[in-house]
């Protein structure tokens, strides 16, 4: 199971994802610079959190034009697993790999704290080690995590069971239907605002995020 962590200028959770895959999950992993184009040797791509290109425009709006993104699309078309975390989720929506968009948080502030998310679909490559309704303690850290989409898209997401995670209890950012993470129709592309890599060691207060990474490994084996 070989992971690749894509590095855009301004990515800042790239090291964290790399560390968790390498040292906690003990899987092979490499950094992929945004101008590289070969992805064929990889099984799972991680688009990490951060502020790609500073996100001075709209989050992820510039990163979608990175040379690597065309190949990320091809990689996903071929069935490769892609997980976008936080800024990675924003990039995936901007690039059209996932529907909808992420607006500024309701309170207009950046929010960094632990939240509880609920598993809504355990039949994906990212949740096969979880069960529906399971609660996970995973932190969020974003200024623009307020998921939105039009009515037709929302009902399609529901019909296809593409909503993978929702916030349980307090909805921290105003996301429509408390959506915290969604996947594509084919189920091989996941975007989520919470950071599973920040909840993968007991020292950090939670290991719940590890179950998502373990699901990915299980899906490929």
């Amino acid at each position: 199971m070989k992971f690749g962590v894509i590095v855009f200028p301004g990515s800042n959770c790239d090291h964290d994802c790399h560390d968790v895959v390498k040292h906690v999950l003990k899987q092979p992993v490499e950094y992929i610079w945004h101008q590289e184009t070969t992805l064929d040797h990889l099984d799972c791509l991680i688009l990490p959190g951060g502020f790609s290109y500073g996100d001075y425009l709209r989050c992820g709006a510039i990163a979608r034009f990175s040379p690597i993104m065309e190949n990320v699309k091809k990689f996903a078309d071929r069935g490769g697993l892609v997980i976008g975390i936080c800024n990675g989720f924003q990039v995936l929506t901007e690039a059209g790999l996932l529907p909808g968009a992420l607006k500024r948080n309701n309170n207009l502030h950046f929010i960094c704290k632990h939240v509880t998310i609920r598993v809504e679909n355990d039949q994906t490559p990212f949740t096969n080690q979880l069960v529906n309704k399971q609660a996970l303690n995973v932190p969020i850290a974003h200024g623009e995590g307020n998921y939105t989409c039009d009515k037709a898209t929302l009902s399609e997401l529901k019909r296809n069971k593409q909503i993978v995670f929702t916030y349980q209890g307090e909805n921290p950012n105003g996301s429509i239907d408390s959506i915290a993470g969604i996947c594509n129709k084919k189920r091989n592309v996941l975007g989520m605002m919470p950071h599973p890599e920040r909840a993968s060691e007991s020292l950090l207060g939670s290991e719940d995020g590890l179950l998502i990474f373990k699901s990915i490994i299980n899906a490929k084996n």
């Binding site: 090291h15 964290d16 502030h109 950046f110 960094c112 704290k113 850290a141 950071h195």
Partner: peptide
């Protein structure tokens, strides 16, 4: 205040 700061990045 401190919830507006990313205090977890770099794990």
């Amino acid at each position: 205040v401190y919830e507006q700061y990313d205090h977890m990045v770099q794990i």
